[in-house]
Simulated assay, not measured.
Amino acid sequence: MEQVKEITTEELKKRLEQNEELELVDVREDEEVEEGIIPGAKHIRMNDIPAHIDAFDKDKEYIFICRSGRRSENVCYYLQEQGYKVRNMVGGMLEWEGETTKK
């Protein structure tokens, strides 16, 4: 199985500060997201990803986010196998030092 590409929280923060247009998807549970989400991120719970697969565009790269980076990595493997371009935010929200917003 091909390794999933990664992005660090620091790299992501820099890219957002440069106003890059990124496709961010937060796969945590509702109650986790209520504590704060990266501005601009879409919220699709991990278990709902298969039902929403048609919402993803194979021409775009998606950055997946969870609490620690483990669930988002699983989502990345799943979508990568379906032919999508994905990247996992390593360290997850536990290491995120950038802005967050309340839903």
Rank of each mutant, 00 (worst) to 15 (best):
M1L: 12
E2V: 13
E2F: 08
E2D: 01
Q3I: 15
Q3Y: 08
K5V: 01
K5N: 01
E6N: 08
E6W: 07
T8V: 02
T8R: 00
T8P: 02
T9E: 02
T9N: 11
T9F: 00
E10A: 07
E10R: 03
E10H: 10
E11D: 15
E11Y: 11
E11R: 08
L12D: 03
K13N: 14
K14C: 08
K14I: 03
K14A: 07
L16I: 00
L16K: 11
L16D: 04
E17I: 03
Q18C: 15
Q18L: 14
N19F: 01
L22R: 15
E23Q: 08
L24T: 04
L24H: 10
L24K: 03
L24R: 02
L24F: 03
D26S: 12
D26W: 13
V27H: 11
R28D: 13
R28W: 11
E29S: 00
E29R: 01
D30M: 04
D30Y: 08
D30E: 13
E31D: 13
E32T: 10
V33S: 05
V33A: 04
E34T: 09
E34Y: 11
E34G: 14
E35Q: 13
E35S: 05
E35W: 12
E35I: 04
I37A: 02
I38L: 02
P39E: 09
A41S: 09
A41Q: 00
A41P: 01
K42Q: 05
R45S: 11
M46E: 07
M46L: 15
N47P: 09
I49K: 09
I49Q: 04
P50W: 07
P50M: 13
A51V: 00
A51C: 03
A51W: 07
H52R: 00
D54A: 05
A55Q: 07
A55S: 13
A55K: 10
A55G: 11
F56D: 10
D57R: 04
D57K: 03
K58Q: 15
D59Q: 11
D59Y: 12
D59A: 10
D59P: 00
D59H: 09
K60F: 14
E61P: 05
E61Y: 06
Y62R: 11
Y62P: 00
Y62N: 00
I63Y: 06
I65T: 07
I65L: 06
C66H: 06
C66R: 07
C66L: 14
R67M: 12
S68N: 14
S68R: 10
S72H: 01
S72R: 01
N74P: 08
V75R: 05
V75H: 12
Y78R: 09
L79N: 07
Q80F: 01
Q82L: 07
G83E: 02
V86S: 04
V86R: 05
V86M: 14
V86A: 00
R87C: 11
R87Q: 15
R87K: 14
R87Y: 09
N88Y: 08
G91C: 06
G91F: 09
G92T: 06
G92E: 05
G92D: 06
M93T: 02
M93V: 00
L94G: 07
L94M: 02
W96S: 01
E97H: 04
E97V: 03
E99Y: 07
E99T: 09
E99I: 12
T100I: 11
T100Q: 11
T101P: 10
T101W: 00
K102S: 00
K102I: 01
K103R: 02
